[in-house]
Computed example of a mutant assay.
Amino acid sequence: MTATFKAERIASPGCTIAECPVWSARENCVYWVDIPEKRLFRLDVAYGHLRSWALSVKVGAFAISDGGGFIAATEKGFAHLALEEEQALFTFGAGPDLPPGWRMNDGACDRQGRFWAGSISPTPAEADQWGALFSIGQEGQVVVRGGAFRVQNGLAWSPDGRRLYVSDSHISNVHVTRYDFDPETGACSNGQPFADHALLGGRPDGAAMDSDGCYWIAASDSGRLLRLTPEGRIDAVIEVDVPNPTNLCFGGADLSTAYITSLRREGVGGGDLFAVTLPFQGLAEPCYQP
C-alpha cells in the first residue's frame, strides 16, 4: 500500500519558478531561488521570518560551501555566492563558458563534495540544443561530464555515493536514469532506465535522497512528489495543492521534514513553499569542498 501525505503551504512569496530548496542546519533555515526573477529567499522555520536578496544573474541551483557562502550554478557558469546584509555578491571565473542565453539548471553535491549541474538552452526543444553535465571540485577544477539533456534535473546520489540518479524534464525526452558512480573519479557508467513518464504520472523535476536509499522526485504537472525504492517501486506520495512542485530537500532537527518548492502557472497558482513531516529521514547533504 502506498502511503500518502499532504504538504502544507508555509510561505507564499509569489515566485515564478521557485527551485533548489537548501537546508541550513546551522541557521535552522531553508533557502531557495526564484530562477527567472533572480531572487534568493531564506525562511527561518522556527519564527517564520522570510527575507530575500536580489541576484545579478539567474541561479538554477546552489549548495552550501564548506569555505563559507554558497557554490552556485548560474547563467555565467559556476560561481561563489556570498550573502551580505544588503546584497548578494558573486565571484565568477570557474566556467564552463556557456553560449549566449544558456544557463545552468539543476545541481547538487556528490558525497565527496563536488558540485554538479547541467546546462540548458533557452530553446531546449530545438534539434541541436542538448545540454550536458559539469562538475566543479577542489581548487575550482571544472570537469565536463557529458550526457545529452533537454532540461536536466533530478540529481541525487545513493547514501553510499555509488549510484547517481539524473532526469530530463522535457516532454520530448522524459526519463530518470541511474548510473554506477565512481566516488573517487566521478565517472558515470552503465546507465539504466529507472523511471519513466508513465510510472511517475508527471514530468520528473528536482529530487532528493533519503537515508533508506529511496529517491524522492517531484512529478511536475501531477501535484505530487514520489518516493521510489531502489527497485523503482513507488511506496509513498506527497500531495501539494498546486500542479507543479519543482524540488524538495529534507530539513529539521532529524531531517524528517520535506521542504518543497513550486512554480506558478497562470490560472492554477503555485510559486509557494510547502512543508510536511514524514516518517522517513533524509540525508545531510554534503557541502561543496572548495
Rank of each mutant, 00 (worst) to 15 (best):
A3K: 12
A3N: 10
I10W: 09
G14F: 11
P21R: 10
P21V: 08
V22I: 15
V22P: 01
E27Y: 06
C29I: 03
R39F: 00
A46I: 05
H49E: 13
W53P: 01
L55N: 00
F62G: 07
F70C: 11
F70H: 07
I71G: 11
A73D: 09
A73E: 09
K76L: 14
A79Y: 08
E86K: 14
Q87G: 08
G93I: 02
C109G: 04
R111P: 01
R114H: 11
W116H: 11
A127P: 12
Q129G: 02
Q129L: 01
A132G: 04
S135H: 11
G146F: 00
N153V: 08
L155I: 15
L155N: 07
W157V: 08
P159R: 06
D160A: 06
I171F: 10
I171N: 07
S172H: 13
R178G: 07
P183K: 09
G186K: 09
G186A: 09
N190R: 13
F194A: 08
L200R: 05
G201H: 01
P204G: 04
M209E: 07
D210P: 00
G213N: 07
Y215S: 02
I217V: 15
S220V: 11
E231C: 11
R233E: 15
I238A: 13
G251Q: 10
G252P: 03
A253N: 13
D254F: 11
D254C: 08
S256Q: 12
R264M: 05
E266N: 12
V268G: 02
G269L: 09
A275L: 09
T277C: 10
L278S: 07
P290L: 09
